[in-house]
Design a protein around this nucleic acid. Structure first.
Lengths: 159, 159
DNA sequence: CAATATAGCACTGAAATGGTGCTATATGGC
DNA sequence: GCCATATAGCACCATTTCAGTGCTATATTG
């Protein structure tokens, strides 16, 4: 439905939380004490992020997770990709990857390339958005949040 | 899964088809003869577009659908909205709209506004993309089509 | 050794999605 | 008027995806 999954949402909450604690380890328990999220599911999400190399796991007591790279270098695209996989928007791609001849509409499909452009634009937006940029500046108050909203409005949409 | 539904895909195929035939009516049968799409489902999609006022229906023999406005004024956002509804990306919105107190994470949710910005950007992209801009230029020959394909290839898209 | 915490794997229930069945109604041509 | 065509409406089923959980194993600290 063109919507982030809860897993991705949880991943973002966890990662944003960790940005303020770079260098430290954050456990799932700690996260669940702070945010009312299902512990087991959050654990699964963190595991996925670990597999994707976005966070580093530390097992055992006093263990947890920490960012695998500075928040500037972790992109929204990488995060979404780790949890949901690279979005394909149309089914053309998925079908093209299967062996059964690919998308049967394709030879006469009038929207494929154009829709690809849209997909590219969205994906570029994701990859251009760093985890750092998703974290509200702690020094800024409510004004800053409004400022951010104004900025995004002024940026306009790529086309 | 952050992906267009097939319904939206079919809608786009139908609409793009109709752009080249502005003023004429296009029936579901006609569309299915040209593209290998499930007829009944495509009919449902066209009905949705009709309800949303994006196309005008003409009942009876020789009937069909035609664009309700010039292709320049029909936006991708309106099309997606008609078929899938306005995307909410996070569940915050949907929950916020319910009466049961809204998203329980919200009071301490560190990603809400930032993710909102991302959503806004995507939605703006959709609304800034006209149906016309999705239609390959008819004055361009096969070369142009190949060019488009080359572009998508160059950017890493399969096919 | 015990407590803590991640790793791995499988599974269930609910919701969204793709697709279909059936009937009613409107229009055009014979 | 009658028939073929084509949309309108509504409900329904099957598959897939997704949220969330159960259980066991392994690693680390004290």
């Amino acid at each position: 439905m063109l919507q982030f999954t809860k897993r991705t949402e949880y991943a973002l909450i966890a990662l944003v939380h960790m940005v303020d604690r770079e260098g430290e380890v954050t456990s799932v328990r700690e996260l669940c004490e702070r945010y009312p999220l299902p512990k087991r599911l959050l654990a699964e999400v963190l595991k996925d992020l670990s597999h994707a190399g976005l966070v580093v796991s530390h097992r055992g007591a006093q263990g947890g997770y920490s960012l695998a790279a500075p928040a500037e270098r972790l992109t929204l695209g990488a995060i979404i990709g780790a949890i949901e996989g690279v979005p394909t928007l149309t089914n053309c791609d998925a079908l093209a990857l299967s062996r059964d001849g690919g998308c049967e509409v394709h030879p006469v499909c009038p929207i494929r390339s154009p829709i690809e452009r849209v997909r590219e634009n969205i994906w570029r937006l994701f990859e251009a958005t760093s985890l750092r940029s998703l974290v509200p500046d702690p020094r800024a108050g409510r004004t800053e949040v409004i400022q951010r909203l104004r900025e995004s409005l002024a940026t306009g949409a790529p086309h």
